[in-house]
Design a protein around this nucleic acid. Structure first.
Length: 859
RNA sequence: GCCAAAGUGGCGGAAUUGGUAGACGCGCUGGACUCAAAAUCCAGUCCGGCUCACACCGGGUGAGGGUUCGAGUCCCUCCUUUGGUACCA
């Protein structure tokens, strides 16, 4: 008969609920510990076995930290806006809200079934108006801010208006110059338009992936999935809400240095931001005006033999000569129809000459301007100087179209391939400047100085990071709290008007236009502005799913506050998150977006820390029993409900932690679950008799054998250390070692078996509570102090020393602890087996490592 | 292509300031209990040689080299797998 896990688990889950065992009070004098899981999207499929892995890990740490005297915040919620519920609504006309509620109920039941110690009174749901009120509020904070590049921080937009009124556009590098007086003379609309360009949330016309069948834009990473399903996706320019994350590129990069995150995650974020240093250079057009390019190799400018513009570049029309018009037009059409992905896949370089030309300011020579889709409008200036001798792409292009290739950096063989490495400059001089003989870094510095002096260019830092497309043409998302007035201005809602509720719809089909289904709710869309008397139209786009997850950790701190997103005093106490665990699939997007919002809130004084998540770990993917990715079609999906029904939640938790290191990918194994289940049964039988009562010997005997005593103290030490380092698999192995040791003995010494229950508790909390209660305790063990160990009692008074001859193990020796080197050496030489290998040879060297080895080197 | 992580028994995995490779679990083998089975308990289990057995000997951490008295651990070259990313000038 297995132990009665069913009744035990139900009993203790009810106990914890009824006693609010895991409720976290707002105030405490204890040190705080904020332990966070990446909350799930509650899909219709229910929990899969991957979810509990991370959740169990944080639960173990949370339970352990409570016993260590920490005030622990460990909450759970739902990232519940999203396309799946909406697609279901499109097919069935069932409101996404009711689908979402059902799915949340399933997830909540399944998560509770695992005995995770969340404070359920802090549960949040991103689709709850009481929650998304604050998502909208943060949107408005961002909308109502600009990035002051001189102070390197976001500031309220009014400060920009004030600065413009006082100093004119000198505060805004890049803006066409105007004086304070000119600003003050502008119309409301003119001022509005200038400010709008500098807000951290702004509307821009950019090329996006539009899917007609779904009636929405798609993120780049979503495109493949829908194309496979037979939908067509095209690139078209559309007006979209954007967030100016690029303003934070440098800070996102720099502040990452302080984070205890996996190095691969930090590395990926660095790559995503893609910082590169170079120069912007203006090439004069032969017909007047100039063409700005970005290059990381200004030192190769003497080798720039042609120019390439992205097909969409605005200068193309001006450069194109009449004879090339047809070819250019045709090429641009073809390029426009290709998605950005298609362009990436094609490695073959194509292009068309515009017929126009520019002057290379270094050589003074006229060079042709081409268009080619290997130059992207979205990076740098959308145009490059092509240096075929020292860039592989330019080299391939120049070869294909027979454009001249000049060597300006020595070190390679440009007759065979482009040389992209560093080297000494050659063929690089004009009347004013020479790079010949200079190393690449020297040449860069020299030419940059010359470019600045002549006004041709300047050093700049460029990032791959692009602004965040922050709008979806969907119903099931947070409405963007903006009204478009008939005079062409935009008006943000005031805080009092939040939350802006989603209108109810009868049907959830795409609107048939490029607007979201919200456009069909005409009563909701059409508004009159009381202040100006103007008619207006609500923004019909909704926020992307990332929005709610950008700040949910803050809401957990103060989840029911009707007046603030989070009380500042509580925020200062709880932030930052001490431990954050979730899948590595969120490495770039979620974690980058959340850091970005956090920094804006920090700049505006709403949060006290520069970074939200101090320590981050990823759980690995759990594969099917066949070692392949779990999927319905392979039939290898493991359902947590079934596992819990058969072996109990404690076994499920224990197995997921015992499989291997948390962050590694590993296959499921039913046999493995049975193994840990057997272990739990062994624990049960050690404490309880056949009738399910406490074994009476636990009350009588109290002297552990020296071996058991040693095993106990070693277990306390190892389990504690392993939990701190999140090595749960080896912690569990140690628990097993102790139980094996204890089972050997007929005695049941309470002095070690009672505190052992506390060591087991973070891993198998239901069983531990039951045993604790059987031992005569009347309260939950949740806040019992973690047992201490005595290092002196772990050490044995004898140790086994390995005897080696020429590095090979020849014998073993049991000696008193800390035996001296002399004694060890003498004992070693006296050992029979060692003597056989030393005989007839000379000992040239002896290495003695105390308590470990003696190695005799013989010849 | 580039970046990152990882390769250890039949399987999941342990062991890193360089010091007994294979903890713990699974599986397997044998035994106890049972009419029998399940469950449970005990013993064994890296591979090979030799042995009644104990002992002993050889080999062994993806491959090859190197450093060292000693390398799974450090260095070099290569191979494989996984994840990410991809014309970013």
């Amino acid at each position: 008969m297995p132990y009665p896990f069913n009744t035990i688990e139900a009993k203790w889950q009810m106990y914890w609920d009824n006693h609010h065992t895991f409720r976290t009070e707002s105030h405490s004098t204890k040190p705080k510990m904020f332990i966070l899981d990446m909350y799930p999207y509650p899909s219709g499929a229910g929990l899969h076995v991957g979810h509990p892995e991370g959740y169990t890990a944080t639960d173990i740490v949370s339970r352990y930290k409570r016993m260590r005297g920490f005030h622990v915040l460990h909450p759970m919620g739902w990232d519940a806006f999203g396309l799946p519920a909406e697609r279901y609504a499109m097919q069935t006309n069932i409101h996404p809200r009711s689908t979402t509620e059902q799915n949340i109920a399933t997830f909540r039941r399944q998560i509770k079934m695992l005995g995770l110690s969340y404070d359920w009174e802090r549960e949040v749901d991103t689709t709850d108006p009481g929650y998304y009120k604050w998502t909208q509020w943060i949107f408005l904070q961002i909308y109502n801010s600009w990035y002051d590049s001189r102070r390197q921080k976001a500031r309220p937009i009014e400060t920009l208006a004030e600065a413009l009124a006082e100093h004119g556009s000198s505060v805004l590098p890049g803006e066409p110059p105007f004086t304070a007086a000119e600003w003050n003379a502008m119309s409301r609309k003119q001022q509005h338009d200038i400010l709008a360009k500098h807000r951290l949330a702004y509307v821009a016309e950019i090329p996006v992936n539009w899917c007609e069948g779904l009636g929405t834009v798609l993120a780049n990473e979503e495109v493949d999935e829908w194309v496979e399903k037979g939908y067509t996706v095209e690139r078209r320019p559309m007006k979209q809400w954007m967030m100016r994350i690029t303003a934070y590129a440098e800070r996102l990069l720099l502040d990452a240095a302080d984070l205890d995150w996996p190095s691969s995650t930090l590395e990926q974020q660095r790559n995503w931001i893609g910082r590169s240093e170079g120069a912007e250079i203006d090439f004069p057009l032969t017909g007047g005006g100039s063409m700005r390019v970005f290059t990381t190799r200004p030192d190769t400018i003497f080798g720039a033999t042609y120019m390439v513009l992205a097909p969409e570049h605005p200068l193309v029309d001006q450069l194109t000569t009449p004879s090339q018009k047809g070819a250019v037009h045709e090429y641009r059409e073809v390029a426009r129809r290709k998605s950005e992905r298609d362009r990436d896949v094609e490695q073959d370089k194509t292009g068309v000459a515009t017929g126009g030309s520019v002057i290379n300011p270094a050589t003074g020579k006229e060079i042709p301007a081409w268009i080619a889709d290997y130059v992207l409008m979205g990076y740098g200036t959308g145009a490059i100087m092509a240096v075929p001798g020292h860039d592989e792409r330019d080299y391939a292009f120049a070869r294909k179209y027979s454009l001249p290739i000049i060597e300006v950096v020595s070190g390679g063989d440009i007759h065979r391939e482009a040389y992209t490495g560093d080297g000494k400059g050659i063929n690089s001089a004009n009347a004013e400047v020479s790079l010949n003989g200079l190393s690449t870094p020297e040449a860069k510095a020299r030419i940059n100085a010359w470019l600045v002096e002549k006004g041709y260019g300047k050093p700049v830092v460029q990032y791959k990071l692009r602004d965040w497309l922050f709008a979806r043409q969907r119903y099931w998302g947070e409405p963007i709290p903006i009204v478009h007035l008939e005079d062409g201005t935009m008006k943000p809602l005031s805080e009092k008007e939040l939350p802006l509720l989603l209108p109810d719809l009868k049907k959830f089909q795409p609107s048939g236009t490029t607007e979201s289904p919200l456009a069909l709710a005409t009563e909701w869309v059409d508004v009159a502005d009381a202040e100006t008397g103007l008619r207006g139209r609500r923004e019909t786009n909704t926020m992307p799913q990332w929005a709610g997850s950008c700040w949910y950790y803050l809401r957990f701190i103060d989840p029911r506050n009707p007046d603030m997103l989070c009380d500042p005093e509580l925020e200062r106490y709880w932030m930052p998150v001490d431990l954050y665990i979730g899948g590595s699939e969120h490495t770039v997007l979620h974690l980058m977006y959340a850091r970005f919002w956090h920094k804006v809130l920090y700049d505006l004084g709403h949060v006290s820390t520069r970074e939200p998540f101090m320590k981050l770990r990823h759980q690995g993917i759990i594969l099917g029993e066949d070692g392949r990715k779990m999927s319905k079609s392979r039939g290898n999906v493991v359902n947590p409900d079934d596992v819990v029904a058969q072996y109990g939640a404690d076994a499920m938790r224990l197995f997921e932690m015992f499989m291997g290191p948390l962050e590694e990918m590993k296959p499921w194994s039913t046999r493995g679950v049975e193994g840990v289940f057997r272990f739990l049964n062994r624990v049960w039988r050690l404490y309880m008799d056949e009738e399910g009562h406490l074994n009476p010997r636990l009350l009588s005997s109290d002297q552990p054998t020296p071996e058991l005593d040693r095993a106990y103290h070693a277990t306390v030490k190892k389990v504690g250390e392993d939990i701190e380092a999140m090595r749960f698999n080896t912690a569990i192995a140690q628990l097993m070692i102790f139980i094996n040791e204890a089972t050997k003995s007929d005695e049941r010494p309470r002095s070690v078996l009672e505190p052992f229950v506390l060591l087991l508790a973070p891993f198998a909390p239901h069983l531990a509570e039951e045993l604790w209660s059987a031992l005569g305790h009347h309260h939950s063990l949740t806040y019992e102090p973690w047992p201490a160990f005595d290092a002196a009692r772990i050490a044995s008074d004898t140790v086994e020393v390995v005897l080696q001859v020429n590095g090979k193990v020849r014998s073993k020796l049991t000696v008193p602890l800390d035996a001296s080197d002399d004694v060890l050496q003498r004992e070693a030489l006296a050992d029979e087996n060692v003597r056989r290998h030393v005989e007839g040879k000379t000992v040239v060297k002896t290495i003695v490592v105390k308590n470990k080895i003696v190695n005799l080197v013989v010849r």
